Lab assay of single mutants.
Amino acid sequence: GSLMYASIFGNVSAIIQRLYSGTARYHTQMLRVREFIRFHQIPNPLRQRLEEYFQHAWSYTNGIDMNAVLKGFPECLQADICLHLNRSLLQHCKPFRGATKGCLRALAMKFKTTHAPPGDTLVHAGDLLTALYFISRGSIEILRGDVVVAILGKNDIFGEPLNLYARPGKSNGDVRALTYCDLHKIHRDDLLEVLDMYPEFSDHFWSSLEITFNLRDTNMIPGSPGSTELEGGFSRQRKRKLSFRRRTDKDTEQPGEVSALGPGRAGAGPSSRGRPGGPWGESPSSGPSSPESSEDEGPGRSSSPLRLVPFSSPRPPGEPPGGEPLMEDCEKSSDTCNPLSGAFSGVSNIFSFWGDSRGRQYQELPRCPAPTPSLLNIPLSSPGRRPRGDVESRLDALQRQLNRLETRLSADMATVLQLLQRQMTLVPPAYSAVTTPGPGPTSTSPLLPVSPLPTLTLDSLSQVSQFMACEELPPGAPELPQEGPTRRLSLPGQLGALTSQPLHRHGSDPGS
């Protein structure tokens, strides 16, 4: 009898404990919600809404976190579960008819179910419309201010047509639940991603989709105040780019002037030289400038040598048109050559190039014969006009050509200096018209024969001689050997007369 009593008592207590286990969990969670309300000092109306929603959600799901349970299964099984949970929507909604099984599984994985109690606001006026909503159960109302403009029910759709707008718009009203509602919502990016994977279904979906109420604000059109608020930074940046392009296009129409201050000032006329910023005076940081632009901040801005204009002085008759350009485009679109090309026009420029290279940067340069637009006047290309890779490749080509020119210049200078040193070592320090008596009659020769300089066969020296023939050397430049009979510069000019005159010897006659 005691054994029977113990078994009955144990079973009854276990049954009672299981009955009250759900209630215990409910009270535990309710205590957490109330502690949250007390800690954050939530006001009474919002506090009442929180408690009511918790009670309804507990009775609806029995305190089970559906998302946590669903995430515990593998992905393939999750797709089947989501397809079952959203079967009513996918079967009865017209846009989803005719979709393949794979497309429906992908869509079912992207849908999220939302449960809303009465009085809950789903979308506020001015919120971004980031999702498309399908009503599965219940009814909602749409308000503009305090005026109800629409009441939607089961199988209705609200949001915005995503295929017509590249960016999400703003809501033009509040969406509030009238009863307990079940909503299926899919985010904008998720829907577009699935439709991109199934393009054959995309056309059918957009053609058959009928949005019951379009929440997009109709005033959000390009150029409206609301649109400016939504895309303020983007609009200002776009206007700045367009104004920069218009100014650079105007600059290219004036090829007669070359400016070292950047493309923003290349198009300024002579009357605007004294102004601080020219056409860019209202925004000094709008356009890029070269490193020399920092010198323009000092006094005497109108007389600054940074602004270059072609000189009108005539060229000498024998002067060549100019050196070879550094870039391939210089032959086609440049009416002034790079300062480095002028360094190779003569030997005198070679000796004085490194010492006063900055001073020569603004000297007169030889002109190319074609009066085409200036290379320095070409505006900086924006990322939309020329690819970045093209600019980098041009810079690399320019750097390689500069290296080759520097190597060639160093070799030419070394060769010229070597020839000058050899000339100085071969010439005796001094010569006299009267020579010392020699031991015999073989001493009648006034000077030792001097062998002429070897013929220069280097390509670089031939180019130097060509430049010497075309360029007029300055007075202080050293002379180079030329073709024809060679003669030492330090010898007297009348050596031929010395050989014809008898030598005057000093000596005593033994017979006297």
Rank of each mutant, 00 (worst) to 15 (best):
D127F: 01
D127K: 03
L128F: 09
L128G: 04
L129E: 01
L129A: 03
L129F: 01
A131Q: 10
A131W: 05
I135Q: 01
G138L: 02
S139A: 06
I142H: 01
I142R: 01
I142N: 01
R144W: 05
R144L: 06
V148R: 07
V149S: 03
A150C: 08
A150M: 04
I151M: 07
I151P: 01
G153P: 02
I157M: 06
G159Y: 02
P161A: 08
N163Y: 09
Y165L: 04
A166I: 06
G169S: 07
K170E: 03
S171V: 01
V175F: 02
L178E: 02
L183A: 04
K185S: 14
R188M: 10
L191R: 02
E193V: 06
E193S: 06
M197R: 09
F201I: 08
F201Q: 05
D203Y: 08
D203E: 11
F205H: 01
E210V: 09
E210C: 10
T212E: 03
M220T: 12
I221M: 04
I221N: 12
P222K: 05
P222F: 05
P222M: 10
G223F: 11
G223R: 11
S224C: 08
P225V: 09
P225R: 09
P225G: 09
L230M: 07
G233P: 11
S235E: 10
S235W: 07
R236K: 06
R238C: 15
K239R: 10
R240F: 07
S243P: 08
S243H: 11
R245K: 13
R245V: 11
D249E: 12
P255M: 11
P255L: 10
G256K: 10
E257L: 10
S259H: 10
S259M: 05
A260I: 13
G262P: 08
P270G: 09
P270D: 15
P270V: 13
S271E: 10
P284K: 04
P284H: 11
G287I: 15
P288K: 01
S290N: 12
S293K: 04
S293I: 13
S293W: 12
S304F: 06
P305S: 10
R307Q: 11
R307P: 10
L308S: 07
F311M: 06
F311T: 10
S312V: 06
S312L: 11
S312Q: 13
P314Y: 15
R315W: 07
E319S: 07
G322M: 13
G322Q: 12
G323N: 15
P325E: 13
L326S: 11
D335S: 11
D335C: 06
N338S: 09
N338K: 05
L340E: 04
S341W: 11
S341G: 10
A343G: 11
G346A: 08
V347S: 06
F351V: 10
F351H: 14
S352E: 06
D356M: 15
G359S: 10
Q361P: 10
Q361H: 13
Q363E: 09
L365R: 07
L365T: 10
L380A: 04
S381R: 15
R388G: 13
V391R: 09
R394S: 12
Q401H: 05
R404F: 03
L405P: 01
R408D: 05
S410M: 09
M413E: 01
A414S: 11
L419G: 08
R422S: 06
R422P: 08
P437Y: 09
P441Y: 04
T442G: 10
S445F: 10
P449I: 05
S451A: 14
L453Y: 13
T455D: 06
T457E: 12
L458M: 11
D459I: 01
L461G: 11
M468P: 14
A469L: 08
A469T: 13
E471Q: 07
P475A: 10
P485E: 15
P485Y: 15
Q494M: 04
L498T: 08
T499R: 11
S500E: 07
Q501P: 13
R505E: 12
G507R: 12
G507P: 14
